[in-house]
Design a protein around this nucleic acid. Structure first.
Length: 198
DNA sequence: CGGCTGATGATCT
DNA sequence: GATCATCAGCCGG
């Protein structure tokens, strides 16, 4: 089915709603004449007033893209090694957004396998660091408008809305109790321990 | 498969 | 100097 680019007006202004909305949508990466696509199967929302959110203490050189209007990419490096892809949320200056935690690979799988150094499908895009490596998402994409033509954008393909599960977020140490992680129930590409994926 | 641990370096205090 | 929105690899069952 043909891809339709997500419009900014399609994105819910509330980041929790946007995290749910993005499940089942597609990340599209254009690189070296290839088009890589993956379906979003796991997200986490980071909100205004949320101590776990990188925007909590205001803008810095690293997180400034999180303060752009919603639909822009915020890319940063976690633990010195893994790139994390986020979609800025809210209005300009809000400093809130959604972390893309896992994708189901759809197109460009050979490219992803080369990038990841493995043939195994489950290991290509299961987890935020893995998916960024598979799609060659580097810091140069920080601030990219995901609602415009370019190297990285968001799309929908008319798939039916998925069944959504919720849980606490993974890997954080502040505001740990909030149920702001969302995933497609039963999808094998969702990351995290089984107890969170019931 | 589940659980644990060391590596790793950018970022901010 | 501490913190950290992770991962690969190892071990036991």
């Amino acid at each position: 089915m043909k891809l339709k680019r997500l419009k900014r007006a399609d994105l819910p202004p509330d980041s929790t709603a946007m995290a749910r909305y993005l499940l089942g949508k597609l990340v599209v990466r254009e690189i070296e004449g290839e088009r890589l696509t993956g379906r979003i199967v796991e997200t986490e929302a980071y909100l205004v007033g949320d101590a776990a959110c990188h925007g909590f203490r205001g803008p810095t050189p690293r997180n400034k893209a999180l303060f752009l209007e919603r639909g822009h990419a915020y890319v940063y490096i976690a633990y010195g090694v893994s790139r994390m892809l986020n979609v800025a949320g809210g209005s300009q200056g809000a400093g809130t957004g959604v972390l893309i935690r896992a994708l189901e690979p759809l197109a460009g799988i050979a490219f992803m396998q080369r990038r990841r150094g493995t043939e195994r499908l489950r290991e290509l895009t299961r987890g935020p660091g893995r998916l960024a490596q598979a799609l060659a998402i580097e810091l140069d994409l920080d601030g990219t408008d995901l609602c415009a033509p370019g190297p990285l954008w968001l799309a929908e393909d008319g798939a039916a809305p998925p069944k959504i599960g919720t849980s606490i977020r993974i890997g954080i140490t502040k505001d740990v109790h909030r149920e702001l992680r969302f995933y497609v129930r039963g999808n094998p590409f969702v990351s995290g321990p089984r107890r969170l994926n019931g």
